[in-house]
Amino acid sequence: MLSMAGRILRDKPSGSADYKGNKTLKSCHKEFHLNSTDAASYKKQIGKNLSFCDLLFFFIMIKHTHMKRHLELFLVFLKIGAFTFGGGYAMIPLIRNEVVKKKKWLEDDEFMDMLAIAQSMPGPMALNAALFVGNKRLGFKGSLFSGLGVILPSFIIILFIAVIFTQFKDNPVIERIFKGIRPAVVALIAGPLTTLGKAAGITRKNAWIPIIVIIAVWLLKISPVYIVIIAILIGIIHLAYLKQKLKR
């Protein structure tokens, strides 16, 4: 039974760094190698012999090995999803607090990479950011957990409002609470800007970039999509220009 669980576990991407140094799993691999001679017969038997006991053992193995990290990822983004009031940008301080400061899954400059990608790809930025962190940490499966975590709170709350609490919008208590939360969310978005600016590599030389973006988006109401495309193009053209200059 143990060896069969080993077979199942081996089919996972066991080469990745997440699985290294895991004693239980290692011993399981040993067990597998001892019995690996009759691996072909396992292939035939897997349909017949997958008993409840095997499955139970498999799930216990998962729970005590790498599944813990998946669960942690899920719970962190569940927390972030539950407290993000006011759209994608409001999620930035929360993700940074959990992922960079507390869990130290990303450095501040990697966090900026993440923001750049989450912003430039289609889809809600908050989900893109969650998927990036999940993918960075535990691959595709990780992104499934972080994505589900970030979606689930809003899904449950909206269903609650739609089905039961239909007077939500006109409730005076809710309105008073939100009068307090709305300016706080703006402050939370603005708060970490200087630290993030340093991580983004803003110095006196390139401070014109954010200033022009602010003028374009805030005053001229240009869509962020164009800003992202133009910024990428400027970066690439600049490098091409520098290369051309070096050749001469």
Binding site: G86, Y89, I92, M112, D113, L115, A116, Q119, S120, R182, P183, V185, V186, I189, A190, L193, L196, G197, A200, G201, I202, N206, A207, I209, P210, I211, I212, V213, I214, V217, W218, P224, I227, V228, A231, I232, I234, G235, I236, H238, L239
Partner: peptide
């Protein structure tokens, strides 16, 4: 090279999001 310009631009986007949220509704 692309990220070198994109990252400061993202900071500008976040700042303008904050500025746009400073309105009569909030």
């Amino acid at each position: 090279a692309a990220l070198l310009v994109l990252k400061p631009a993202i900071i500008g986007l976040i700042a303008s999001a904050a500025l746009m949220l400073i309105n009569n509704a909030n």
